[in-house]
């Protein structure tokens, strides 16, 4: 059974900027189908943690073990750059806060969604286009927008396009960095709902960084609370939010309720 082992095993992971720690001593396991929220204020180290886990930043201390598609377990720090990029192409996704960072703004929606397929060796135009169009539909972008560039899209549509571009190759692990902030509340709700249903349909494992506890509550199973680069509390999302133990979590939760 593929569920016997976690997808990601994070042990005592740190990333150092010079002699200062961006994040420090982080431990957790992530299982297929599980959504983990990382919450905290800006500067708490949550984006550094995301960067370290996704191998965009190096691992100064500790280990990150990832169970590959074929069942082998790899220590990410020991993988070659080409192996990491292969993971990026075929097993991982990354949804940026700013869609322009995750899309090619001058390339059509179809080209944006088709690119990962082409990167994975798809060489049949008709099939690439059909798959891309199906994905546009799945993320609620009308099929007839397939040849428009994201420059002509609204913020919410761009973000949905970015999600399609990430999910088209059926990744196993998706990193999301504040995917809904900067959007109108109604657009946010729609996007969260979409993410939630795609995550459960595709059995994705997701690590989502957010400063918004409501986002964590709506879509995550588990939550890590970060402060000053360290995890100050972790557990089931509803437990962390309804019965916060750490002083900082209590502050965070009470701030939200009053805000």
């Amino acid at each position: 059974m593929s569920d016997e082992r976690p997808l990601l095993e994070v042990r005592n992971v740190s990333h150092r900027y010079g002699d200062r720690f961006g994040c420090r001593g982080v431990d957790f396991d992530l299982w297929p189908g599980e959504v983990l929220a990382v919450v905290g204020e800006s500067g708490s180290g949550k984006s550094t943690l995301l960067g370290t886990l996704s191998q965009r930043l190096d691992t100064s201390e500790g280990s990150i073990r990832y169970r590959l598609h074929d069942g082998d377990v790899a220590n990410l720090a020991e993988l070659s750059e080409s192996a990491v990029r292969r993971l990026w192409r075929s097993e991982w996704g990354f949804v940026h806060q700013n869609a322009a960072d995750g899309l090619r703004m001058q390339v059509s929606a179809g080209g944006n969604v088709g690119e990962p397929l082409m990167a994975n060796g798809w060489r049949h135009y008709g099939r690439i286009r059909a798959e891309a169009t199906d994905w546009l539909e799945r993320v609620e972008i009308p099929r007839d927008r397939v040849d428009d560039t994201p420059a002509a899209f609204s913020g919410g549509m761009r973000q949905r396009l970015q999600i399609a571009r990430n999910l088209v190759v059926s990744p196993r692990l998706v990193f999301m960095d504040e995917p809904t902030s900067g959007l109108d509340v109604s657009v946010q709700a729609r996007l969260l709902d979409l993410i939630r249903s795609l995550v459960s349909d595709l059995e994705l494992a997701v690590i989502i960084v957010t400063h918004d506890l409501a986002v964590a509550r709506l879509i995550s199973h588990r939550t890590l609370v970060m402060k000053d680069g360290r995890v100050v509390e972790s557990g089931l999302t509803d437990r962390v939010l309804d019965d916060p133990q750490a002083p900082y979590t209590q502050l965070l939760v009470s701030s939200i309720l009053q805000g």
Partner: peptide, 9 residues
């Protein structure tokens, strides 16, 4: 109830 459900520690 919440402790039984795992919602409270």
């Amino acid at each position: 109830l919440k402790m039984v459900y795992g919602n409270y520690a």
